[in-house]
Design a protein around this nucleic acid. Structure first.
Lengths: 234, 234
DNA sequence: GAGTGCCAACTTCCATGCAAGATGGAGTTA
DNA sequence: TAACTCCATCTTGCATGGAAGTTGGCACTC
């Protein structure tokens, strides 16, 4: 009878603790700018709002600090990290490194697997093109995000997935902002198609190069915009 | 008078808290395999050993879990993460991504800066060659580690440096083990020289490619060794 | 002997208390 | 008015206790 829970023993799916709740809630508030960047909150205040004591909030803050989303100032409070253009540049370089390698790894997989992933990525690219046709910016952003996440996740490297998740979370606010500024939605669709093509052909070097160029192009278009807007942070 | 501490206000250099102490101590014990992989420790026991209460140990454990060095099993304890060959492979892929990008970034810097970094890296490569001549394996490992760390640090991307630090910490035990198994010390020296040459020439694509190949070659030599030894973990 | 249930011991989770560092403003002095 | 000191108040760092989950082994049954 106890055999029925064999999977649980290995996979350890546990119900979330208060710390997990606090972590998720705070992350969500930061993502949605309910806690604006630069805002300094006290653990007590957050604990009160979430209906728990300071301890789980404090421990969640440690994890968020490790993720680079907040900074804990000893005996002063928690500040939400702001994103300067220099930070966005750093983030882009990490993404270029990770996605480039992920694309190469995908291209090195056996043909059948490659084809399955390529189909999945092509579907997301198709959704982007469609969203662009009808002018649905939110749908475009969703599909674009899905494409990039899938690219990394299907490479099957847990550590890369984790790094990608953390860096994507950091960039989320900037992404929301820049989504509205974009003028080159068509270019992204075309570049995605070329990345998928390289993966499908099994050309790792080309896949990496194209993923790299795609992100570098986006960076070179967005960073001047951010700087011209004089955005010191967010 | 208060002006004297102006630097401190910005730079926030604080004396380490007990949490920092616990974090450093536990990390060190893991690195040196004093806590062997798979070992399950209780927070109480560690707290006792470090002469503090459970709280700072618990918070340090959260950070170590975020770093991927331990896993916290709810209501069971802290287990030291073991490294399977699959993990080593994952780590190599991350390193390939990060160091490849770092090498490219270095090659894109202005000539003067490039030259300074190249000189620094060349010196470390020289130290490796020298250590190899006299058969000093520890010195060789030290210089090699310095080369790879410098490669990433001089690229000047704080997030990359952080990722590299975390992943290097994870790999430390495996590195210590495989250092003794290595037969190809000369190949590494030659490959390092060629990476430095590409940086010096300002050829980003070549620098990335050479950094990539260097790590891929090392991986392909070490992984079969690990697997043939039947090392399921460490 | 094999299987089952139960309990005592051990573990973390979380709340809370106390101490100490940081801060901002009132009051003092020149 | 400008600058300085002091203190009330706010903040977290850390210790500790109670609650609840987990485990391993002992006794009991068949």
């Amino acid at each position: 009878m106890a055999r029925m829970r064999a999977a649980k023993d290995e996979e350890a799916e546990r119900r979330p603790s208060l710390v997990d709740d606090a972590y998720a809630a705070m992350k969500e508030e930061i993502r949605e700018s309910r806690f604006p960047p630069g805002y300094q909150a006290s653990e007590q205040e957050i604990a009160l709002r979430l209906g728990m004591s300071r301890t789980p909030v404090h421990e969640a803050a440690i994890r968020l600090q490790e993720d680079g989303l907040v900074r804990i100032l000893p005996r002063k409070g928690i500040v939400i990290c702001a994103l300067a253009p220099a930070d966005v540049r750093e983030i882009y370089d990490v993404v270029i490194a990770i996605e480039g390698r992920a694309a190469a790894l995908l291209a090195e997989k056996p043909a059948a697997e490659r084809e399955a992933v390529a189909a999945e990525l092509a579907a997301l690219t198709g959704a982007m093109a469609e969203a662009r046709e009808v002018g649905d910016l939110a749908a475009w952003g969703h599909a674009d995000e899905g494409f990039h996440r899938t690219l990394v996740e299907r490479a099957g490297n847990g550590r890369m997935i984790r790094i990608n998740q953390a860096i994507t979370d950091q960039a989320h606010r900037a992404r929301m902002l820049t989504l509205k500024l974009r003028r080159e939605l068509g270019a992204s669709v075309a570049e995605h198609e070329r990345i998928v093509e390289a993966i499908r052909m099994g050309d790792a070097a080309m896949a990496q190069e194209r993923a790299h160029r795609h992100r570098a192009r986006a960076r070179d278009e967005l960073l001047p915009l951010l700087e011209s807007f004089g955005l010191r942070h967010l």
